[in-house]
Nucleic acid binder design. Sequence first.
RNA 1: AGCGGGAUGGGAUAGCCAGGAGAUUCCGGCGGGCUCAUAACCCGCAGACCGGUGGUUCAAAUCCACCUCCCGCUACCA
Length: 709
Amino acid sequence: MTCGLPYANGDLHVGHLRTYVGGDTFARALRTLGQEVAFVSGSDMHGTPVAVNAWQEGVSPEAFALRHHERYEGIFPRFDVDFDNYGHTRTDANVELTQSFVHSLDEAGYVYDEEIEVAWDPEEEQALPDRYVEGACPYCGAHARGDECDEGCGRHLEPGEIEDPTSVVTGNPAEYRTRSHKFFRLSEFREYLGEFIARLDGTSNARNQPHEWIEGELQDWCITRDLDWGIPYPGEEELMLYVWVDAPIEYVASTKEFAESSESTGDDDSPTSDGSAEGAGESFDWERAWAEDGELVHVIGRDIIQHHAVFWPAMLRGVGYNEPRAILASGFVNLDGKAFSTSRDRAVWADDYLAEGFDPDLYRYYVVTATGFQQDTDFSWDRFQERVNSELVGALGNFVYRSLLFAHRTYEGTPESELSTTVRERIEAAIEDFEESVNEYSVRAIGRAPVELAAFGNEYIQRNEPWKLVDEDPDRAAQVIRDCVQLVKAIGVLAAPVMPGTAARLWEQLGESGSIGEITLDAALEAPPETFDAPTELFERIEDGRVAELNEELQVRIEDATSEPGTGAASADADAQEGGEENVDTEAEPAATADEADLEPIVEERIGFEEFQDLDLRVGRIERAEPIEDSDELVRLEVDIGVETRGVVAGLKRLHDTDSLPGQKVVIVANMEKAELFGVESNGMVLAAGEEADLLTTHDDASPGTRVH
RNA sequence: AGCGGGAUGGGAUAGCCAGGAGAUUCCGGCGGGCUCAUAACCCGCAGACCGGUGGUUCAAAUCCACCUCCCGCUACCA
C-alpha cells in the first residue's frame, strides 16, 4: 500500500492529511484481517517548483527539499500515520531504481528522441522549463507562468505558447530553442490501459476519470526536462527525468528500503514490523510484492488520478511489474466550500491542530467518517466538535466508560457468565460488516464500525438496566455486564484502524496484555481479562467556548486570505503574491478571452451613498487625441470638463481609431489622483466598459462639466 | 467544449455499482424515560413527493435519455 508522495514544498494542512489518514486506516484494517502489508510513501523532492523556490530563498534545492522532507517525516507519526518506510525520491534506492526502470523501458523500445521547442535564457545559456518562464497569456493577456495562466483564465499552457517570455530567475527575455528530449511511447499502451482501467478497484473516480484520455488521443509522454535538479536520464547526463517518472518509482524504492531494514533488524518489536501473524520474523519480499503475486493499492488525492491510472500503470507494464489492483482517490477538504490555499494561509495546518493539543484520533475519526472517501468535504470546527462530542464522547467513550466502570465496581473485572447469543451475533455481524467494508474499499465504513457497535451497546445496557438487576437478579446482571465488556473489547478491535491511540488505551484499560496493533478481528470474540482496574474517560468533550475561539482565529485568517487589499492594488503587488492558487479576486483588468466573456461577480460589499459621493464624475468632451509613442495602448486625450481642459491618458489605442475620438462625449473621474504613464501626466480617468473599452457617454445634451450622479 | 464528481427532511450525510416493505446516521426542534455513565444514555413525535422532465419495469432515490445548478480535471505543474 502506498500513499501519494507529498511534494517537498510547503506545509501540510489537514486537507493533505486526509489521504494519509485514510491510507493508514485502510492499511491497519487490512492487517486486522490478517494480511501482510507494507505501507510506504516518501517525499517528492524534484521538479521545477522546488528548484525555483529554493533559488528564491537562496538555498540549494537539495537543502530546501530535505528541510520539508524532514518536517513531513516528523508530522505523520504524530497523526499515527505509521509508514513502514518513509523515504524520498533522492535516496540511492530511488535513483538506482528509477534509472533501471528507465533503462528497461529504453531497452524494450518504449522510448524515442524527439526535438521540441524549449524556452531558453540566452545570456545564462540555460533552459527555462515550465515555471522558469513567465509572460503574457496568449488567451487572455494576463500575467502567467510558463505552464499555466495562473492569474487569468487558468488555462494550461504548452511550452512555446506564452508571449513575451522572460526568465523567472534572471528577468532576461527568453527565446525558444530546439532541443532533443525523450518520449515514452504511452500510445502503445492504449489497449492495455483500456483493459486495466476496467478491472481497477477502488474509488469510482479513479476508474472513470481516465476514460477521456485512454479512449481519446493518448499522446506519448515527454519524460525529460532541461533542468539541473532531478535524476539524470541514464547515459545522457544533461537531460533530467521528469519528476513524474521518478516519483511513483519511489513507491517501489520505499518498499525495497523497508524490506532491507526489516532484514537487518530482523524481528524487532516496533509497531510497524508486525505484518501478519504468520510472517513474523521474515523480511518483507519487495520483489514479490511488486513483480510477483503482490497486490498494489495506491491511495492518492483526486488531483493526481491521471498519473496513477495512466502513466504509472503503463510504466509498470513496460518493465513487467504488477499493475495496481486498486486506486483510492480522495476528495478535497475545503473551507466553506472553497479550496485550502497553502500560499495564502487559508488553511488549518497540521501543526496548528497538534499545537491545540487535540488527540490525533479525533481528526482521524472526523475526516475518515465525514463523507465517502472520494467526496469533497468541508472542514469546520463546529462540525468537528459536534461529531466528537456526540459520537466519540457520547456514544463510544461513554459506553466504554460506563461498562468498564460498572464491571470494575461490581465485579472487579469481567463477571463470570457466558456471552449471550444476542450479543455474540451482533459482534459477528459487526465483524462481517467490517470485512465487507474493507473489501469494498470503504474507508468511511471502516471508521464508523466502532461507533455503530457502541451505539448498540448503549441501547443494550439501557434496555437491560443492569444497575437495577444487580439487586433484583444478580445472574442476569452478570450476564448483561459480561456482554457489555465483550462489546467494549470488540469496539477496541474495530477502532484500532481508525483510532489506534484510543484503541490502545482501551486495550490497556481492559487489562489486555498484547499490543492492539497486532491483533486480528477474531480477538473481538475472545474472552476479556477476568480483572481490570477502574477505567478513565477515553475522550474529553470539546466545549463551546473553545470552538468559538478556534472559529475566530480561523475566520481572521480566511478573511486575510480572501480579501486582497482592495484599493489601489497595483499589478506590481500582484506579482509579489507568488503562486496564488484559486484566486477569485484577481485584478479587474484583463479577464475575458476573445471567445468567452466571463462576467465578474458583483462585489458583495455594499457602499454607502457618501462613499459614492467621493467620486467626482463629470461629463467631458474629447477635444484632441494623440497616441503616445512607444506605447501599444495609451492615448493622450485633452478633455474639456467645463471649468477646464484636462490632459488624460487612456488605454484606447488598440481599440479606437485615434482620429475618431475628438468630439466624443465621455464620462471621466475628475478627482482621480494624478498619475504619470509613459512620462505623460494623466489628470483624470476616462470610464469605459469591458475589454473593448466601450466608452461611457451621455445620450442627451449634458454639457461638459456636468456632474454625474 | 469534453470528461469526472455531486444535487436526498432545517443543516450535514448514507443508500445508488448487484431496482422491491414510503429511505441511514449525526446535529437541531418537540415530548417522555433513566440515573451505571463526561447534563452523558435510552424511547417516542414532527419534518424529505430522494435537483427537473421523460422512459424502462409488476416495482426506481437506485437503471436509461435529456435538462438545470454546484465543484473539479483536461498530459509535458506537483
